[in-house]
Design a protein around this nucleic acid. Structure first.
Length: 286
DNA sequence: CATTACCTGCAA
DNA sequence: TTGCAGGTAATG
């Protein structure tokens, strides 16, 4: 579910609820496979007693800086959500991790599909996690020049590359489709076929869709919530994602759905001209 | 590069 | 009943 804007929104709302709190105990942990590191016994031994110093996001990871140089890292994957609740609120069957806090509240990690992951990282683990991702798209090292150097030397289809967290961190299926529509670029274009002007346009579009989505507190399609169960608003702004059959807001052509890299992909076939050799000849205007 | 696996719930 | 879902790792 959550991509960069959703995890960013969650981190922002979670910070005031967690920073300064001490974790008293692990009250529930009934899906042990979600603990990726360290081993389960160490996780259970090390976490109680830690104090939360900061909450932030890197890529799609939600990171809680703890004392003694530990970091609690959570990945929500498709259906994960977190919340902080009064002690009277009991976890349901999908809530697989509950941490009691020193103010009497409980931190919940709920995940219907059980794809979510939690790790307790030392400084080396955190460094390795950071190194496994490309630049933050809204940070200083992601810029048109970087995108040019990355795309010109890569073969392969554009959309899967944009989903690759090593190229740029935090994009997922929603925002890749939205950015490609905004940039008027077809998802099946080969990465090394883009000219510089298109790459600059793509860069601008990626930043724009992410900034708008953050301003809208994320896209709630089904499960995503932030804060006290609130829904995002960005689903009202989607141009193509899950808009199959509706008219394009730029040209009125009906939005189409296809499958690219095994992922549902939405586009305007008029605005986003078909790539050479894949669907139809590339118009000379490109 | 494509396919499969990991899981559950929901809509068609 | 089938297909589909915001993600990613593992496997041919």
């Amino acid at each position: 579910m959550p991509e960069l804007p959703e995890v960013e929104t969650i981190a922002t709302s979670l910070g005031p609820q967690l920073v300064g709190r001490r974790i008293k105990a692990i009250e529930k942990l009934d899906w042990e496979k979600m603990v990726e590191a360290p081993d389960l016994a160490s996780f259970q031994q090390l976490l109680p007693g830690r104090t939360v110093l900061a909450v932030y996001r890197r890529a799609k990871w939600l990171l809680c800086t703890l004392d003694e140089a530990w970091t609690l890292a959570l990945h929500l994957r498709m259906t994960g959500s977190v919340s902080v609740n009064d002690a009277t609120f009991l976890p349901d069957k999908h809530t697989h991790l509950v941490l009691s806090l020193d103010n009497g509240q409980n931190f919940f990690f709920r995940d219907i599909r059980k794809f979510g992951k939690v790790k307790l990282l030392d400084e080396i683990g955190l460094t390795k996690l950071n190194a496994s991702f490309g630049p933050e798209p809204l940070g200083p090292t992601f810029n048109p020049a970087y995108l040019v150097t990355q795309l010109v030397r890569r073969r392969g289809t554009l959309k899967p590359l944009l989903l690759n967290q090593k190229l740029v961190a935090g994009l997922g299926n929603i925002y890749v489709d939205e950015a490609l529509w905004l940039a008027e670029i077809h998802p099946l274009r080969l990465a090394n076929s883009l000219v510089e002007a298109e790459i600059t346009q793509l860069y601008t579009a990626i930043c724009a869709v992410l900034r708008q989505a953050i301003a809208q507190k994320g896209t709630t399609l089904r499960d995503y919530r932030y804060g006290n169960g609130q829904m995002g608003e960005n689903q009202k702004q989607l141009a193509v994602y899950q808009q199959t059959g509706k008219p394009c807001s730029r040209c009125e052509t009906l939005i189409e759905r296809l499958v690219v890299a095994q992922r549902a992909t939405h586009l305007c076939p008029t605005c986003q001209k078909a790539p050479n050799g894949k669907i139809s000849p590339l118009p000379a205007t490109l």
